[in-house]
């Protein structure tokens, strides 16, 4: 049995963390063949070849795949599908966009956000914002799935798999890329950071959100936000943690001015240590916090920055 794993490649760079965690899940299912695709993907492929447990890396380089548009990338994956028992990808927004399309083209169901591999047909996945875990058995001939990376360990590096260039497909001509709005940041990436500091509506304004960022920088942390903070314009959309944002499980998660709605908890409750700072002692966030501090954040956060 062989598994085709779609590596996360953005603008030519491999997202090593997401890809190597998906490899850990895929390894349990068979031989892992990684596909790297993009306008440039060779460097990413060379890096993917070093992930332990990868048996081969396929590279499909073409401007057509440069912006991970769903239609051409899904067509490419479907053209490679025969011979694989499983087609998997880390649960990134790209994969969530592309993989259901792949599944439907193959007339199979998608298994989204898999958090556990029981056997080749049986998987665990969260439902209802992680308030229940469902074990499902697939009767489909090919299993198409996305892997929630926060629940799998990194596969070690040290491999040296062969890299093979493959033919690319035609442009379905359905969509075109126009622009990306991506802020460059020196901070660690939210989903792979060891420490995450998140702010909520309680922070009050975009200006005051700098306080959250200052604490994050002191800790070398990534910055997260609640939906309310993003909706209010305090923080950009890609910082949202939760059921419908990013799912994180750092060693330390500090929630500041966040009430702890289930939709937020869905994205962070598997963190190792959770700290909550909130002025309302009844806030539900305290039910999941290892260390809760009932305090005004405008007093507590500057003091915390000084004390660290």
């Amino acid at each position: 049995m062989a598994v085709l794993l779609i590596a996360e490649v953005t603008d030519g760079a491999l997202a090593l963390d997401a890809t190597a965690k998906a490899v850990t899940a895929a390894k349990q299912l068979g031989d892992v063949i990684v596909l790297c695709t993009g306008a440039s993907a060779k460097a990413a492929a060379d890096e993917a070849a070093k992930i332990g447990g990868v048996s081969k890396v396929l590279v499909a380089e073409d401007a057509l795949y440069g912006h991970r548009l769903a239609e051409p990338v899904a067509a490419l994956i479907v053209s490679l599908a025969s011979g694989y028992s499983h087609i998997v990808a880390p649960s990134t927004t790209d994969a969530k966009n592309i993989m259901p399309r792949v599944a439907a083209l193959l007339d199979v169901m998608i298994l989204s956000d898999v958090v556990g591999v029981i056997d080749a047909d049986t998987f665990e996945r969260p439902i209802y914002a992680g308030n229940a875990i469902q074990t499902v058995k697939s009767t489909d001939s090919v299993k198409v799935m996305t892997i929630r990376t926060s629940t799998f360990d990194l596969a070690p590096t040290g491999g040296s798999a062969p890299v093979e260039v493959i033919a690319t497909g035609d442009d379905p001509g359905l969509s075109e890329w126009v622009e990306d709005k991506v802020a460059a940041s020196d901070r660690p990436e939210l989903t792979s950071a060891g420490v995450v500091v998140s702010g909520g509506r309680g922070v009050g304004s975009e200006t005051d959100f700098a306080l959250i960022e200052k604490l994050a920088d002191k800790l070398g942390a990534a910055v997260g936000a609640s939906r309310a903070a993003v909706d209010s314009g305090f923080a950009p959309n890609d910082w949202q943690v939760g059921q419908t944002g990013k799912v994180v499980a750092p060693d330390l998660y500090i929630a500041i001015g966040i009430s702890g709605a289930i939709q937020h908890l869905a994205g962070m409750k598997d963190s190792k240590i959770i700290v909550a700072i909130n002025k309302d002692e009844e806030a539900p966030i305290f039910q999941v916090a290892d260390f809760g501090l009932v305090a005004d954040l405008f007093v507590a956060v500057p003091a915390l920055i000084d004390a660290l």
Partner: peptide, 11 residues
């Protein structure tokens, strides 16, 4: 809304 921020496409 994508992982890195925002992407605009024409479909």
């Amino acid at each position: 809304e994508v992982d890195g921020g925002l992407q605009t496409i024409k479909v």
